[in-house]
């Protein structure tokens, strides 16, 4: 009887969760339509800003997720983004080619991924220290080599997807974006599918949960961890060049501004799933967009410093409320020894 009661309770909880989520989604959609009806320009502007603000966060979260799903904590996302943003910018400035800049930045991210994997997997270093090394290294290198008065030939341009872009509201938000914003959207779905429906994903999750079990069935734990952290680094690299070549169009000192750490919060809030992280990134993106809107468009009588806090307060709330509740991969942070 007791067991049946427990099941009932679980079932009710699942139903509540299911309908609760749908209810919230529906309410959000209605809210968007209502505000579009009231002020179409402001609404599209806000949604657009939300999407663009969420892009580096979701890419960073994917980077962290690939690492943690395979058992490696990557706290160096911030540094990976920053150095990639810098290298991308410098290469674009010297070669006068944005494409070359993007490629160089992504490569830089991957190299830093390799560096982290080497410290965490081969040297079995404490992974928090490994990540911190990358953060400090990136901040130091970019500040030292930074040169003022460098310019790049424009920014990555907005690409309109033909007739799709002409749909009211949806078209201008989803189908009129620069390339990396599209890429991030595609990556969310690709990584989600790969993680849960392919051999690579199954093995990655196994290595992050119970590396010994994976080892005993002939899976190379080290190689898989290297692969994941390097691919993750490349994604952080994409986030970096998004900042310097797509969003801002130049490089500034410490321009990542904590996004690499917010990305970790996004990853946790999204329960280590790409789709979840995307939702979380949109929420943070919205907080950012709102913050900008209130600061510059606003007639509100609140000091701008408080409004500027919004995304960071959200991070603290999310981390305090969710970290304990969702379950990270079991073997995260532990170096694996074969013998």
């Amino acid at each position: 009887m007791q067991a049946a009661g427990g099941l009932d309770k679980q079932f009710n909880k699942a139903m509540l969760w299911y309908w609760g989520r749908r209810g919230v989604a529906l309410a959000l959609v209605l809210l968007i339509f209502y505000s579009y009806w009231q002020n179409p320009q402001l609404t599209t502007g806000m949604l657009n800003a939300m999407l663009r603000q969420s892009t580096p966060l979701v890419l960073g979260a994917l980077c962290g997720m690939l690492g943690e799903r395979s058992g490696i904590i990557n706290i160096g996302i911030e540094g990976q983004m920053l150095l990639a943003a810098f290298v991308g910018f410098m290469v674009a400035a010297t070669t006068r080619s944005l494409i070359a800049g993007v490629v160089a930045g992504v490569l830089m991210g991957a190299i830093l991924g390799l560096f982290l994997a080497f410290m965490a997997v081969s040297l079995k270093m404490d992974q928090i220290i490994g990540g911190t090394v990358i953060n400090i290294l990136a901040l130091g290198l970019t500040s030292f080599f930074y040169q003022a008065n460098q310019t790049i030939p424009g920014k990555l341009p907005i690409i309109s997807l033909g007739p799709l872009a002409d749909i009211p509201l949806i078209g201008s938000v989803l189908f009129r974006n620069p390339p990396i914003t599209y890429l991030a959207l595609i990556l969310v779905f690709v990584v989600h599918y790969a993680l849960f429906y392919t051999r690579w994903g199954l093995r990655t999750r196994a290595v992050g949960e119970h590396p010994r079990a994976a080892d005993t069935v002939g899976i190379n734990v080290y190689r898989l961890r290297y692969m994941n952290v390097i691919i993750g680094g490349a994604m952080a690299g994409v986030a970096g060049v998004f900042l310097s070549l797509e969003s801002v169009g130049s490089f500034e000192r410490a321009m990542t501004n904590g996004r690499g750490f917010v990305a970790l919060a996004v990853m946790i809030f999204g329960r280590w799933t790409p789709l979840g992280a995307w939702g979380a990134a949109l929420l943070f993106g919205f907080a950012n967009a709102l913050q900008t809107q209130l600061q510059f468009g606003g007639s509100l009588q609140i000091p701008y410093q408080f409004i500027g806090m919004l995304p960071y307060v959200l991070t603290i709330v999310v981390l305090a409320g969710f970290v304990g509740r969702s379950r990270p991969p079991a073997a995260v942070g532990q170096p694996y020894e074969t013998e």
Partner: peptide, 26 residues
Amino acid sequence: FQLVPVMTVAENVMLGSETTRRWGML
């Protein structure tokens, strides 16, 4: 036991000797 607790029996059994369709799809 060398089993991944959060995975299903099928996932655990095939891990490492996966039955796949094209492109490594399980």
